[in-house]
């Protein structure tokens, strides 16, 4: 009932903004966030083992906010990489943020949205918030999606600062076997929810192709495997999807 009322554009826009911000914050408390927290427990453990101080780990978590990039940076640091080498390695692992941002931004932008707001919000783009947003945006009025995404992304980011803090402050660590099982939940969560969030048949084809050629490129094109999978797999899926859509359109007519 409340949700229905708030969808009404005649209501006070400020109240509605706060409503969707809070809704985003509430919906950040969910299974995927828990799985991400488990992954950050592992990250903090890795950071501590590699001599990264608590402050440094917190700065990494908050400013990078992409778990693979954090792991790449720590690996580079522990290998004694130079600033330029580390920068290039992280740049390669983070390039996937660009297509993710391009895909998400048009869905939360209205005529009145200022670009600096989107630039700030884009910091929260990482797989977890991206997948949740793609799935939930259809239930959020377009002019309030920035509020919703800010509440969602901000909360997930803040929670994981506390996870890293907690790992550094706690003396004992978790059993590696338990952590291993918990880490396995993350890809399964992405696998199922990404399938559920696919808008058109193209998305599902892209997923299947990406899953199949991803490991192959991991072995043959180390460093640029994700980008190669994205562009080659994504382009192939788009072409197949386009033919598919034309065929179904013909069938309907």
């Amino acid at each position: 009932m409340v949700a229905k009322g708030m969808n009404d554009e005649s209501l006070n826009p400020e109240n509605a903004g706060r409503y969707w911000l809070l809704k985003g914050m509430r919906e950040a408390i969910c299974l995927p966030t828990f799985l991400l927290m488990c992954a950050f427990v592992g990250f903090a453990g890795l950071a501590r083992e590699n001599g990264i101080t608590m402050l440094q780990a917190l700065v990494m978590t908050s400013t990078i906010w992409a778990l693979p990039a954090c792991v790449v940076l720590i690996t580079a640091i522990s290998n004694g990489a130079t600033l330029i080498a580390a920068f290039i390695a992280v740049t390669l692992s983070s390039a996937r943020m660009m297509p993710m941002a391009i895909a998400l931004i048009p869905e939360m932008r209205t005529k009145n949205t200022r670009t600096w707001v989107l630039l700030l919000l884009s910091h929260f783009i990482a797989i977890t918030a991206w997948v949740i947003a793609l799935r939930r945006f259809k239930d959020v009025p377009k002019q309030y999606r920035t509020y919703y995404f800010g509440g969602l992304g901000g909360t997930i980011t803040a929670i994981n600062q506390f996870v890293v803090l907690g790992v550094y402050l706690s003396a004992n660590s978790f059993s590696p076997k338990v952590l291993g099982v918990l880490f396995f939940l993350t890809p399964i969560y992405f696998l199922t929810s990404l399938w559920g969030s696919a808008r058109e048949v193209t998305g599902k084809i892209a997923m299947v192709i990406g899953l199949m050629i991803g490991p192959y490129f991991y072995l043959t094109l180390p460093g640029i495997d994700l980008l190669a999978t994205g562009f080659i797999g994504g382009t192939a899926a788009y072409i197949i999807g386009r033919i598919w859509r034309k065929q179904t359109a013909k069938g309907d007519a």
Partner: peptide, 15 residues
């Protein structure tokens, strides 16, 4: 979206 999805799928497969 297709490119981004294939890319995330590669992350999943890697994990």
């Amino acid at each position: 979206r297709s490119v981004a999805t294939a890319l995330v799928a590669a992350v999943i497969a890697q994990l």
